[in-house]
């Protein structure tokens, strides 16, 4: 049992009358690599965005090291700097080069010096194999490369948890591999990760826990062996069988 980092209690989120998340209970421990799977529209991404406070939960609480970050008067920006996020559509800053993308958060938010930030950024850019491209602008590199830069940008902030919101869904099959292998390496290095994904192989082989979501609730939560080998609920079996057949 690792140290408890995040604890989500009775989290609900609705957009208008549309209830997207219903009473979610969920914990993240240090070193966890959690894959969140489920059909589109089941609330996976919304859960992730709520955890990073990009969406404000309608009710419930999110405890980060025991402190409720949804409460009024909590410094959301400070909390966000501890929780990295990698988006489906990369969201690299278009007005900056690859290197600047990875430095700006460090210099502006963490108040690191230029040189320190540069070295730190380079460390992670090398790790994701993007060091030769530090002078490129985001529009000049491929989707897989953009996503690797986005991972380096998030890592350069030294986050405690890294959230991935369908990191490979916008990529063509050839580029999926390069991003997944970077993520796998991060997982092996002990990074705490929360991955919303449709890559079942990744969920099965890399993650330590798999969460299956259906219609805004956590339907099943367990180790990959349990969930893929012996799913307890009918919905989970139905969902997984669709992947096996294809």
């Amino acid at each position: 049992m690792g140290e408890l980092i995040l604890q989500v209690n009775h989290l609900s989120k609705s957009f208008g009358s549309n209830l997207v998340l219903r009473d979610i209970d969920f914990t993240v421990e240090k070193g966890d690599v959690i894959s969140i799977i489920g059909a589109s529209g089941s609330g996976k991404s919304t859960l992730l965005r709520c955890i990073n406070l990009l969406e404000t939960p309608t009710s419930g609480e999110i405890l980060y090291h025991g402190k409720n970050v949804v409460a009024r008067g909590v410094n959301a920006t400070e909390y966000r700097s501890h929780v990295g996020m990698v988006f489906q559509s990369f969201n690299l800053f278009n007005n900056m080069t690859v290197l600047e993308n990875c430095m700006v958060g460090q210099t502006k938010v963490l108040k690191r010096g230029k040189e320190e930030a540069r070295q730190h950024a380079m460390k992670y850019l090398e790790e994701v194999g993007m060091a030769p491209y530090i002078n490129a602008k985001p529009r000049q590199i491929s989707g897989g490369q953009k996503q690797r830069v986005a991972i380096a940008r998030a890592m350069a902030m030294d986050p405690e948890v890294l959230l991935f919101d369908e990191p490979t869904s916008a990529l063509d099959p050839e580029m999926v591999g390069e991003v997944l292998s970077v993520m796998q390496r991060l997982a092996e290095e002990g990074m705490t990760m929360l991955v919303v994904t449709h890559e079942m192989a990744f969920a099965r082989d890399v993650s330590t826990r798999v969460v299956y979501m259906n219609q805004g609730v956590i339907c099943e939560d367990g180790s990959p062996e349990e969930l893929f080998g012996n799913p307890q609920k009918q919905e989970t079996r139905d969902f997984l069988s669709r992947f096996r057949n294809s």
Binding site: N52, L54, T77, E78, Y79, R80, S81, H82, G84, M85, F87, S89, F90, N91, L92, F93, N94, N95, V104, G105, K108, V109, A150, R153, A154, M157
Partner: peptide
């Protein structure tokens, strides 16, 4: 400007002013 740019900036912990001056306004 694509809202994703703001989200990307927020996700690394930038404040509104930092997001504006570093990311949004230059674009």
């Amino acid at each position: 400007i694509d809202p994703g740019q703001t989200e990307g900036a927020k996700a690394i912990g930038m404040t509104h002013v930092q997001t504006m001056t570093n990311v949004i306004l230059p674009q």
